Amino acid sequence: MSRPGPVITLAAGAVLAVGLGVASAIAAQAPVTEAAARAPSTAETTAPPTAEATAEATAPAAGESAAPPATGQTSPAPSAQETAAPEPVRTAPRKADYGGRVKGNGGLIAISIRDGKAIGYFCDGRAEAWFKGTESGGELRLTSRGGGRVTAELDGGRARGLVAIGGGKWRFVAPTVVKPSGLYRATAMVRGARLRAGWIVLKNPNGGYTQVGAAFEGETQVPVPRLQDGRPTAPVTVGGATLQPEDVDGFIEELR
């Protein structure tokens, strides 16, 4: 009769050894499996953001304005007319006197302005003309009874323009002047006729004065005396009568 005891014992030991090896392998793999379970999958990490998330990310913060979408176009450059500075508006002083020579004629012209109203006088020793009109925005427009006219621009202390009288037209440049340069006039009634005379006096740059004038008794021209240099309002004799010349401030209201 055989003894099974040792064989059973050996078989049981083999079974126990196998079981312990399997348990050890399972225990070694368990941490890796749990870590893999806790880690996000590749699909989860690469999934695109939702529409709501995109809107939140691109929406401007409070107080900020959204930038306009790029169109690939640039604003046109401003034109020369848009970038050019506006022309300054020419203005004349409330009170000013101008006097100068008429080119190509040899005569003189004098213009006086008071609060936008103006008078002028042209004389070349033979013909004469009184003008009246207005000044606005540096533009002067004067007319005479005989159809003559004066047009000028007032700028830089000068009147530059054109005088037209008796079918002739001449240009002139008349700087501002101060007394005793300027415009003078004298009137009186002599032998039932109105006697009148007018003068323009201009100081010369090198000293002395240039003056021109004309006098009429009624419609007849008579010799006109020269005014005193430095004292143009001193009395003078015209046509046998003594006249008292006045500067422009003494008679401008009668002609305006």
Rank of each mutant, 00 (worst) to 15 (best):
R3V: 10
P4F: 08
I8K: 11
T9M: 06
A12N: 12
A12M: 13
A12W: 04
V18R: 05
V18M: 10
L20C: 06
L20Q: 10
G21N: 08
S24H: 07
I26L: 14
A28L: 08
Q29V: 12
P31L: 02
P31K: 07
V32M: 08
T33N: 11
E34L: 15
A35K: 09
A35T: 04
A35L: 12
A37P: 00
T42N: 15
E44H: 09
T45F: 15
P49M: 11
E56C: 03
A59G: 02
G63D: 14
E64K: 13
T71Q: 05
G72I: 03
Q73T: 09
Q73F: 14
T74E: 08
S75G: 05
S75W: 07
P76K: 09
A77D: 06
A77L: 11
S79Q: 02
A80C: 00
Q81Y: 04
E82M: 01
T83W: 00
A85P: 01
P86K: 03
V89A: 10
T91Y: 05
R94V: 15
R94H: 13
A96N: 10
D97Y: 12
Y98F: 15
G99W: 01
R101I: 03
N105F: 00
G106L: 05
G107Y: 06
L108P: 05
L108M: 13
S112G: 07
I113W: 06
R114P: 00
G116M: 02
K117W: 03
I119N: 10
G120W: 07
Y121R: 05
C123M: 05
C123H: 04
D124W: 02
R126D: 12
E128C: 01
E128G: 05
A129F: 07
W130A: 06
E135Y: 00
S136D: 08
S136N: 13
G138T: 05
R145L: 13
R145W: 03
G147P: 01
G148A: 06
E153F: 08
L154K: 03
D155G: 15
G157Y: 10
G157I: 06
A159W: 01
A159E: 04
G161K: 02
G161D: 00
V163P: 04
G167V: 10
G168K: 14
K169T: 13
K169R: 15
W170E: 06
R171N: 12
R171P: 03
A174M: 10
P175W: 04
V177E: 03
V177Y: 11
V177D: 10
K179G: 12
R185C: 05
A186E: 03
T187G: 01
A188N: 09
M189F: 14
M189G: 03
A193S: 11
A193M: 11
A193V: 00
R194Q: 12
R196N: 12
R196M: 11
G198A: 12
G198T: 03
W199V: 07
W199D: 02
V201G: 02
V201F: 05
N204P: 01
G208M: 00
Q211W: 04
V212M: 14
V212L: 13
E217A: 09
G218N: 11
V224A: 13
R226V: 15
L227R: 03
L227S: 05
Q228P: 07
R231Q: 11
A234P: 08
P235F: 05
P235G: 08
P235A: 12
V236P: 02
G239I: 02
G239A: 15
G239Y: 15
A241W: 01
P245L: 11
F251M: 08
E253F: 09
E254N: 14
R256Y: 01
